[in-house]
Amino acid sequence: MSRRSSVKPRITIATAGLGVLPETRLKVACTLLMADRMQVDVVAWGASEANILVADNASLEGSLAIDSARQLKLPTLTLGRTPSSLLPTLSPTATVKDIAAELKSLIRSLVGESGHAPRLSPLLEQLRLDHPAGGLQLMELGLVRLLVNRDSGVVHMLRRVPLEDLLHEAGNPYWHSTAVTPEWAEQHRSDVHASHSIESIWWRLLELSQIDLAQTSAREAPVRLAAWPELDAQVIDPQWLTALAYLMHESWHADALAELSGIDAGMIRRLLHVVVASGLASQAPQVAQAKPATSNAAAALTGSILKVAKRFGLKLFGIGHA
């Protein structure tokens, strides 16, 4: 079996306002989806970040959740007696099979053909530098308020909030986004407490394992760095330097780079997602294969590098560091 075919999208479905029977049928339907290589978790709406909402639009709780989901552009299935003209709707007495079929359709549209799971949080989506769209977006979450300017690649903090707080909330699905004009931005210039490059934010996110970055790039295409990223020496683990160095020279598939750099393949995928999302992926087509140094001069140079690297505490994947 190829590694690609073993990828299971992990989907979180949130429920709101459902009766006991529809909720139970939904959970059984989700277990059926495992046969289609779809791994689904069911949570209460608001309990954690979700990819899909299933709600009864006749209940207050369900109706409020549907409004929020619309703002978040979250795919929604209504399970109630009131048909919706805008959303797929099933009766509360729908069978497990019907529910499973509707969910399968929603998940497939969400996941696409890539086999990768779903959307980023609204903030991370706005921070993507691999999309051509520019413009100014005001992003708000509780007391955190910031202006994203993708044209200049900068985030302006409009309230005095530590960058660490922003990073920890980056994956929150409840960010509210509003497009604003340059005139609005000019009027609020005096509110700016600090500015950070979007590129550096992505590289800070690399170290935050709780932020899921898997949705940033759908394809497992080879990746090469177009330029050395803006790194903060105080927060970046030096182990990434080896992988970054290889990516500066050539394009790599995750598995090949993991093997060469000695870094876990899952972590390398995370790194490649950041390369893509930070806008630093080069379009270079060729894919590299590691070749051992053959000339005496190259071998001597490699030996020297390994000795010095060891002295500075840098673990390079090579004979001198075995």
Partner: peptide, 11 residues
């Protein structure tokens, strides 16, 4: 050093 090493490995 990492950049030098990667370059030497890739010749």
């Amino acid at each position: 050093l990492a950049y030098s090493y990667a370059g030497s490995q890739l010749q």
